[in-house]
Amino acid sequence: MTQQSEELLTPDFLRKIEHLSLVAKRVFAGQMRGERRSTKRGASVEFADYRNYTAGDDFRRVDWNVYARLEKLFMKLFVEEEDLHVYILIDVSRSMEFGEPSKLLYAKQIAAALSYIGLCNLDRVGLAALAGPSISLLSPKRGKQAAFGVFDWLSNVQAAGETDLAACVRDFSLRTAQPGIVIVLSDFLSTTYQQALITLLSRKFEPVILHILDHNEVEPPLVGDLLLVDSETGERREVTITQTLLRKYQQRLANFFVEIESFSTRYGCSYVRVTNDAPFEDLILGYLRQRALLK
């Protein structure tokens, strides 16, 4: 494991999460045999259904016991187990650089952990860094050995530019044919996040929203006459921050949370909001399991 990957996750922590697996609400069709139930019927040991025999079927799957009782040929169908596609989209806009630790580092750690969990479960894990209107894509990897590459790729991801979530997700969906779980790690400080999520839903992806915020964004330690500069756009705003103004900000933030949670509920998306002051290990081993995103 490289030095850069060590910065993201420690070996001890990797051992702790090896037994975990990602939970998908829906069943997706995979590409290769794996450990996930597929929409296809296949050759696993788990019985799925019966169907009438038609000419040309494989005799080996005729249920002869039923034929003995009913004198009719029925084919036994078995559940196919295939691999699951897991995509992790990381918002790498400049706004993610904020916080201590930075939201981006926190997101990269989560991405690394989820990727490792996916790779350990023979899922196909692909990553994408959403920077600007385009994306930087790591094609889906499979198998535990691919973890090193994923970690290296994550380590090299740098914050840059302004994120247009809708454009990035549209680009991602066009370049990705196989549906699966899409875990979006972002602060969602973008006006186009709803459009982005709708794009994913329309392409049969299952979005999982991990909303990462800096605790200073939840409770800004700002006071006085300030000139606020937007880190992404450079937009400057003069404010005189008073108790009244802070109350207005809190109200606006609460409305923002309500809006994104309502959207998630309406479209059946999983939504998890975390702040970067929450211990990372507790998040993976505890909180995400409680929210049934991991098991």
């Binding site: 006459d225 000139l227 937007d230 880190s231 606006r252």
Partner: peptide, 19 residues
């Protein structure tokens, strides 16, 4: 115009209504 201290924030989106 008041001479104000400059503070870089992640986004001014949430400050828009307030300010």
């Amino acid at each position: 115009k008041l001479r104000r201290k400059e503070r870089v924030v992640s986004s001014t989106m949430l400050w828009q209504d307030a300010v």
